[in-house]
């Protein structure tokens, strides 16, 4: 294409090719530059800052002093006893990690339990109705997260809707304590993250060719076998995507556990926030953030490996 503009001297095919290749690389770099810029500015940059901060010393009133220190990382897992200065495992942190993982897993399972049938229901509606159902599923998502969380609080608090109804029906006499429990957090997160499960699962069920279901029935499968051997393996990618989309933000959730879990039932997100706020220990906060990221990455790798495996192995 560019031969006309270049020097009039004869060129061998090889030279032309080489020129085109270089031109190509240049063009590609040019085309990719906005993406590269954005990734550097908004992803890699901040991440590097966080890594950097995690190796600095905490300032007295927040912020950091530019002195190298591993105290932040040290305090992620260990603590010194206030009285005799002996080293201990930071069991407060460990229990928060554990609760975060537990509640996130629970949330993922609950969103799957409610979300998959919902997605199936929507995907099997007539085409004209599906968009309405999808719309209804996503409407809460347009509302501020805090407002939605407070709405959940209205449901489950002592004088809330659920307790009032139960008392009115004389099923219980005293209100059930639901606020400020792990249940409240899981309940709230399930509600908040449900669309993130429904949408990808819906997409994969909608793509499912129902003729495959007919083929399974034709080949003597009953309903259960058909679901287990044909529908499930084909919808699995959607379920994996949904689980990841729910699990990851659950693990780092901040507002929901803060509002519904109260001060006692901290999750990872609250612990991090604490270090940047009242705790005034930015290096610890930064180290915790990175720990969370590593945790998520390890969990994802493990999950994808376990669930994304080749499903044909059983046939061989």
């Amino acid at each position: 294409m560019t031969q006309q503009n270049s020097s009039p001297s004869m060129k061998t095919a090889k030279e032309v090719e080489e020129f085109a290749r270089r031109q190509d690389t240049k063009n590609r770099l040019l085309l990719a530059s906005p993406a590269i810029l954005i990734i550097t500015l908004f992803a890699a940059g901040p991440l590097l800052i966080v890594v950097l901060y995690s190796f600095l010393t905490a300032g007295d009133y927040g912020n950091v002093k530019w002195i190298f220190s591993t105290d932040g990382w040290f305090s992620v897992f260990m603590q010194r006893d206030i009285f005799d200065d002996t080293l201990q495992i930071a069991d407060a942190h460990v229990s928060i990690f554990w609760r975060s993982i537990k509640l996130s897993l629970l949330t993922t399972v609950l969103t799957a339990a409610f979300g998959i049938p919902t997605a199936y229901f929507i995907a099997t509606r007539p085409l004209s109705q599906r968009n309405l159902w999808l719309f209804l599923i996503t409407v809460p998502f347009w509302t501020n997260l805090l407002v939605r969380t407070i709405a959940v609080m209205e449901l489950i608090r002592g004088e809330g809707v659920i307790n009032n109804v139960l008392r009115w029906a004389h099923i219980i006499d005293d209100p059930i304590q639901m606020m400020f429990t792990d249940f409240a957090i899981a309940f709230g997160m399930t509600y908040v993250y449900l669309p993130l499960m429904v949408l990808p699962v819906y997409a994969s069920i909608e793509k499912l060719d129902f003729r495959l279901v007919e083929a399974a029935y034709d080949l003597y499968a009953n309903r259960w076998k058909c679901f287990w051997r044909v529908i499930l393996p084909i919808v699995k990618p959607g379920m994996i995507a949904g689980s990841i989309l729910v699990f990851v933000p659950s693990l780092g959730a901040y507002i929901t556990p803060r509002v519904l879990g109260g001060g006692k039932n901290l999750m990872f997100g609250n612990l991090i926030e604490l270090q940047f706020g009242q705790g005034r220990n930015w290096p610890l906060g930064a180290a915790l953030s990175i720990s969370l990221m590593v945790l998520v990455m390890v969990a994802l790798l493990y999950y994808v490996k376990v669930s994304g495996g080749d499903d044909n192995n059983e046939h061989r």
Partner: peptide
């Protein structure tokens, strides 16, 4: 009775 479907309807996740 078995059917050979027009689009074959083979299970894509199996060999």
């Amino acid at each position: 009775v078995n059917t050979v479907f027009q689009n074959y309807a083979l299970f894509p996740h199996m060999t």
